[in-house]
Design a protein around this nucleic acid. Structure first.
Length: 424
RNA sequence: GUGGUCGUAGCUCAGCUGGCAGAGCGCCGGGAUGUGGCCCCGGAGGUCGCGGGUUCGAGCCCCGUCGGUCACCCCA
């Protein structure tokens, strides 16, 4: 809300990304893009908003995210839209719309919006990088997808994180298990936590994920999906585990891991930072969703993917003291005491040669221009005074070393840059 | 959605039992005429988040509100 007497601020739970922090984002996104290409994923951009039904049908109407946290709006044409709360549903919608050849391997980087109360590591607009593979249920793909996430975290320098792995079963075994669990919970309803005693019947799996002691004590004695997985799911899980071992990726089997979206089947996984204090320690997660394409109107098509929260990953990096990125200073800074015409020419020419150059403006004093040069972080100051102007030359003064400054003609400077790509 | 806590200069923060808004850093200018960092001198910059109330007088007390932050919940 903007008060007329107050300067406007970024909306609650959102943040402006500016230098120098933005340099880290550039670097992180570059790393993820490179890795995605190495794994043969193609970039997909979808609109940041979709018909609400894409998310309702995709993620599940009773899920917390869809029922309570979506930014919904009606446009001037009366269409009912929602800002994307997560990445997968949109990609699947695009897949259904365009029907690319399978397996379809997509990577993305996008903001996500959820109307939640902000806190450390939780924002109303946060950003995710992720991948999706549609059109194959080969367990090797599960392994590749998990491996990509693992390599990404390693590439950032993270060490202190844990991969949890579970299987949610499929259409053959999960419904049966859900019923078993439902009736088991009904018997122990009195012992569940306040919230789940009321709602356990709607989605019994949620109770497994409850962190309250009451629910944990109950479910520990209850049926585990692991024990009733059908043969195919069991084999699939075993092959994923084997693949991860071959990749040298350690994980813990986590039979209680139930993720927040209803579309998951079979493989589900989550990466949690051990360096982050507090509850917001999930830095990435995903899983298989073999029924999602169908529920969005496409042909039966298996799929799997993950999303990684950029803000959280960077918090984890901070906590571990890794992925420190310096913003790139210009190579040279032009100081011109003769009015600025030479500065304009030199700056433009060097930039055309691919050299990063900054300069001073407003015809400020020598001292002020040198101060600006120093602050810019540039290695060299290129100085133009009356003498240089008269001889069509420039004085190159090293700012980071004790080396002597030299004066050379512009002709010589450009020739040198043309040949070597460097000023010195 | 619930609860705790905090809003003073661009940043980090002082400001006594209500009595003239401060410091450090940063920024701008100067320190003899063309050279940054260190040092010295000077300067600009504040509706004390916003709106009410109490009071002779409110940055300080009271109410409301907005925002930050932390926790629950959920998740990235």
């Amino acid at each position: 809300m903007i008060d007329d007497n107050q300067t406007p601020q970024a909306p609650t739970g959102t943040h402006d990304l500016m230098p120098p922090e933005s340099a880290r984002w550039e670097s992180l996104l570059g790393l993820f893009a490179n890795l995605s290409h190495r794994y043969s994923f193609g970039l997909v951009h979808t609109p940041m908003f979709e018909d609400v039904r894409v998310f309702q049908r995709g993620i599940g109407e009773v899920s917390e995210v869809v029922s309570k946290e979506m930014y919904e709006f009606t446009d001037r044409g009366g269409r009912h839209y929602a800002l994307r709360p997560e990445g997968t549903a949109s990609i699947v919608r695009a897949f259904v719309q365009h029907r690319p050849t399978t397996p379809f391997r997509a990577w993305y980087a996008t903001p996500s919006f959820r109307y939640e109360r902000p806190q450390a590591g939780r924002y109303r607009q946060h950003h995710q990088v992720g991948v999706e593979v549609l059109g194959s249920d080969d367990a090797d793909i599960d392994v590749e997808v998990i491996a990509l996430a693992q390599r990404f975290f390693e590439g950032l320098g993270l060490k202190s994180f844990t991969l949890s792995l579970n299987s949610m079963g499929d259409g053959a075994c999960r419904p049966q298990y859900v019923e078993m669990l439902r009736s088991f919970l009904a018997e122990h309803q009195a012992d569940l936590c306040e919230e789940h005693a009321k709602v356990y019947a709607i989605n019994p799996l949620r109770v497994l994920d409850c962190k309250k002691d009451a629910c944990q004590e109950v479910t520990e004695k209850g049926p585990f999906l692991e024990d009733v997985l059908c043969g195919e799911c069991h084999d699939h899980l075993a092959r994923v585990e084997e693949g991860l071992r071959q990749e040298g990726i350690s994980f813990i089997r986590s039979p209680r891991l139930v993720r927040g979206f209803d579309y998951y089947t079979r493989t589900t996984f989550e990466f949690a930072s051990d360096a982050l204090e507090g509850a917001q320690n999930a830095i990435g997660g995903g899983g298989r969703y073999d029924g999602l394409v169908e529920s969005l109107g496409g042909p039966p098509t298996p799929g799997i993917g993950f999303g990684i929260g950029i803000e959280r990953v960077l918090l984890a990096c901070d906590a571990e003291g890794v992925f420190v990125v310096e913003s790139l200073p210009p190579v040279a800074f032009v100081v011109d005491a003769t009015g600025g015409d030479q500065a304009r020419r030199i700056t433009a020419s060097l930039r055309a040669f691919g050299i990063s150059v900054d300069r001073a403006y407003d015809q400020r004093s020598m001292k002020a221009q040198f101060k600006a040069a120093d602050r810019s972080g540039a290695a060299l100051a290129l100085v133009v005074g009356d003498d240089e102007l008269a001889s069509n030359s420039v004085t190159v003064r090293p700012l980071r070393t004790q080396d002597e400054q030299i004066t050379i003609t512009l002709e010589e400077l450009f020739e040198r840059v043309r040949k070597t790509g460097r000023i010195l």
